[in-house]
Design a protein around this nucleic acid. Structure first.
Length: 426
RNA sequence: GGAGAGGUGGCUGAGUGGCCGAAAGCGGCGGUCUUGAAAACCGUUGAGGGUUUAUCCCCUCCCAGGGUUCGAAUCCCUGCCUCUCCGCCA
């Protein structure tokens, strides 16, 4: 949610900034609601004040043993007026709320203009794109060859976009996860965090998935409304919901491995083959909760932490700055890391690192106490995948394949594979 | 699943329908004292919002949502959560 004060002080700025993301904000409509809100709120509070004073007077008169009937007659009808005013105020506030919560975050000044992923800007590339002197296979064929990746059985058990992994391929995914968790905790200063995989609606509202993106979620319960997490971002970030974090605990750096569940509504034609786009996948997520003054640096750092995993795995990747049209609803600025997939001869997203500034914090009521002022201030939240484990598995299988169909295990993963160096095809 | 107890400020914990945004203690902050520190003593110390240049003033909040009342932390209803005992269980 955006800062309401900004709307009152510089509506034009808000409007032009929202236009950057193709959001047509009706300033007149807003102004109308805001003016009505102001008027009815003042009126309601005046009535409340009147009621409070009268009630106090009645209490005092009663204590003295005086006749309170005249006073009671005086407040006759006040209750009705108040109720009407309060109802009207509630309606207007609800209107204002739904207007505000539907608005995306304002973009950082450094975000390039553009409509879709074609307008994203490549910041850097790392590593050599591997060249093969044989006919390569993609991960689906390799997975089948190794009897380690079985989409048919996944479809039988559940449906499309589910998979069964077996033996060394399953183990390789687990090794990737373990390696990533260890690297982030031991080298990057994150605290390992285990969280629920089912969350309530308040949590999803806090991070911005609800109310707008309910279609992308799997709902597992009505009353109470509960959902499977689409990313660990949701439970981990919600740790600070309704909290005032002590200054000496800042910044918070948390890393969490969870499965992620996405209905992928609106992606029916995309990536139907293989492991790239599943309803259930494993991911290691990095979350930082920081002071406003530190968030831009923290965003750069967090992105580097994710990049570091790709470097250690010796996977070629590029870093992309998302353009205005491709940046997510809650984000001010997002870097995507795209890993080279030989099977697709393309760079594909394996991490997305975003700075939400105070947008989530305002929804979450997540604050920290600034010792300089003694006052609570909204935190800034930053998160990124570090990395998507399923896609990392795909990348390793495809980049490390041999002519015989073996999969060479990256050196850093070998300790997690019991010292194994190669997964043999036979 | 069965039975009971309870949710109050950063924490512990009192609270008779009006004088309660809330005793007391701890903690925090400021001061006195001290070369400095500790102790002691004194003072101060919740959040959000409205109006305002600002101060003042006002409103809301004692788990959440409804209700009763001129007036609710306090009474009533619903929900959520926590704890204890029993049962079951990885």
């Amino acid at each position: 949610m955006l800062d309401p004060h900004l709307f009152r002080s510089d509506l034009e700025f808000v409007q032009t900034q929202l236009k950057r993301r193709g959001c047509d904000f009706d300033a007149d409509f807003y102004t109308d609601i805001e003016n009505r809100r102001k008027a009815i709120q003042v009126k309601t509070q005046e009535l409340q004040n009147e009621r409070n004073l009268s009630s106090k007077a009645i209490g005092q008169a009663k204590a003295k043993g005086e006749d309170v009937q005249p006073l009671l007659d005086q407040v006759q009808g006040l209750g009705e007026q108040l109720k009407a005013a309060a109802t009207e105020l509630g309606d207007i506030q609800a209107q204002m709320q739904s207007l505000m919560e539907g608005l995306p975050n304002l973009l950082d000044a450094t975000v390039p203009e553009g409509n879709d992923e074609d307008d994203n800007i490549e910041i850097s590339r790392w590593g050599e794109v591997p060249e093969f002197d044989f006919e390569i296979k993609d991960h689906v064929d390799l997975g089948a060859m190794h009897k380690g990746m079985d989409f048919e059985t996944g479809a039988k058990i559940t449906g499309a976009r589910f998979v069964v992994l077996r033996s060394n391929i399953a183990r390789l995914q687990r090794a990737i996860i373990q390696f990533m968790l260890d690297t982030h905790t031991d080298e990057h200063g994150y605290s390992e965090t285990y969280v629920p995989y089912i969350v309530n609606a308040d949590s999803l509202y806090g991070t911005g998935q609800l109310p707008k993106f309910a279609d992308d979620l799997f709902k597992v319960s009505e009353d109470p409304d509960l959902y499977l997490i689409p990313t660990a971002e949701v439970p981990v970030t919600n740790i600070v919901r309704n909290e005032i974090v002590a200054a000496d605990e800042m910044p918070l750096r948390m890393v969490s491995h969870t499965p992620c569940f996405r209905s992928e509504a609106g992606a029916y034609g995309k990536d139907v083959r293989g492991l790239i786009r599943q309803h259930q996948f494993e991911k290691v997520e990095l979350v930082q909760v920081v002071k406003a003054s530190e968030s831009e640096q923290a965003h750069e750092d967090l992105t580097e932490h994710a990049e570091n995993i790709l470097k250690k795995l010796k996977l070629s990747y590029r870093k992309v700055l998302l353009c205005s049209g491709d940046t997510g609803f809650s984000s001010t600025k997002t870097y995507d890391l795209e890993v080279w997939l030989p099977g697709q001869e393309a760079y594909r997203e394996i991490s997305s690192c975003s700075n939400f500034k105070d947008f989530q914090a305002r929804r979450l009521k997540a604050r920290w106490r600034n010792p300089e002022t003694g006052k609570p201030e909204l935190v800034h939240t930053i998160n990124g995948s570090g990395l998507a484990a399923g896609r990392a598995l795909v990348a390793i299988m495809e980049n490390y394949q041999t002519a015989a169909g073996d999969i060479v295990i990256p050196e850093v993963l070998q300790p997690y594979m019991g010292g194994m160096k190669v997964i043999k095809a036979t």
